[in-house]
């Protein structure tokens, strides 16, 4: 090293090589650190045993027309409502109203009688009121979130207030006429 550095030409050549080596080593270091960071970050994601608790059966038999129940799925409240004829009609009529997050009622309920939604306001996650018959149901006859005043209609679509989206739908299927499987 010492003797090559003495000659200016080979010194330049060396400098180029040194720059390259420093860059390459630095880049490898960054890649290495980043690939070690991923396991650390991903360890914060839901773990296998949390993911395992991800299906629930719901027996629909005891629910009367106009009644709702709230069940827990993945730690979240899920609203299951057996809608009245009037509510279904209203929801269909509102298909053509001005909607912030346009969705047809037919796309939100697999069977018109049954509306199954995650009961968390899409604003900041409070639980909207409207499950009990004595609850306020908002200006559109569905649900009302008291936290910052979001109104949802009879298909759980956002109609007024700060929430950006309709109440989300969990994945579910009808096992038979009287049972659904959520998850």
């Amino acid at each position: 090293m010492a003797d090559t550095a003495a000659s200016p030409e080979s010194g330049d050549e060396d400098a180029g090589r040194r720059d390259f080596l420093i860059l390459a080593a630095g880049a490898m270091g960054v890649v290495g650190a980043a690939s070690f960071a991923w396991p650390l970050i991903d360890s914060m994601n839901p773990s296998a045993e949390v993911l395992a608790l991800s299906t629930v059966d719901v027996d629909l038999d005891p629910i009367q027309e106009g009644q709702s129940i709230t069940i827990v799925w993945q730690g979240k409240p899920v609203f299951v409502r057996r809608r009245t004829k009037a509510e279904i009609e209203q929801a269909l009529k509102d298909d053509s109203a001005e909607l912030r997050d346009p969705e047809k009622d037919g796309d939100r309920a697999q069977k018109p009688d049954w509306l199954v939604m995650i009961g968390l306001c899409t604003h900041l996650g409070c639980i909207p009121l409207g499950q009990k018959s004595t609850d306020p149901k908002g200006e559109f006859g569905g649900w009302f979130c008291p936290c910052h005043g979001s109104h949802y209609d009879t298909a759980g679509r956002i109609r007024k207030g700060p929430a950006p989206k309709n109440l989300p739908l969990p994945p579910y299927k009808f096992v038979d006429d009287k049972t659904i499987l959520i998850g």
């Binding site: 839901p46 993945q74 730690g75």
Partner: peptide, 8 residues
């Protein structure tokens, strides 16, 4: 989800 380590 990452912050929660779950779904709530």
């Amino acid at each position: 989800t990452l912050l929660w380590g779950g779904f709530s």
